[in-house]
Design a protein around this nucleic acid. Sequence first.
DNA 1: AAGTGTGACAACCGCGACGCG
DNA 2: ACGCGTCGCGGTTGTCACACT
Length: 219
Amino acid sequence: MQGENLHKGTWLQEEDEQLISFVTRLGERRWDSLAKVAGLRRSGKSCRLRWLNYLRPNLKHGPFSVEEERLIVQLQLQWGNKWSKIARRLSGRTDNEIKNYWRTHLRKRVQVQQKGEFIYKVENVAHDFNKKSIEVVCSSEGESKENSIDRSPLSDWGMRNSPYHESKILDWIAELQNGFGDKEKELGQDCNSNGSMYEYNPHQEYYDTWDYSGFLWDL
DNA sequence: AAGTGTGACAACCGCGACGCG
DNA sequence: ACGCGTCGCGGTTGTCACACT
């Protein structure tokens, strides 16, 4: 292909029609060759993407249903950003569409929820573990327990490991969904044994408060 | 009304995997 | 075993429309 002559950007209707015509005749393969034969001044990649995402039959183009949203979130938690894999579970949806939808809609909801309810719940659950240290802080600084929890060791842990650091969110969620990883398990064991700042203990209640499938849809 | 910010979506890019000669 | 072409995937960017000031 002669790269300098290739079209880029939005597809024209004539290009779409031409692509449909030739894919129907030649099949979904050899995209570079197909682009040449069709006289499309597009890369094979571009043709493939256009076909897969917008032109092929049985594609849905409307808004996502609640059920589809649920499935996306569930599978994203389960598999991570395996969009093509997720797309195979949602008939008529493409990986690109799902990826975009996640980024522009669902991820934000998760973040918002994490900044609020999730941290709140984690810290509530952790409250008992921190009582001792909180009391120490209160007695030394003369402030309320409610305020001092933000300075508690666990709170610090939460801040450093959660929503405020976007890159860690999804990994963290995935870990939660899959159960705690070895690191966290070890951490929990260490905490129980030495009562250090990581007093965080992954007992069952913690999981129960993370009713992910439920909270998201109530926003 | 004009400028700016933001969200949503389409399209592109880079890279790794795979198949074939 | 190796090189090459092709495909598939996930991340990123570009563009447009709309909201806000």
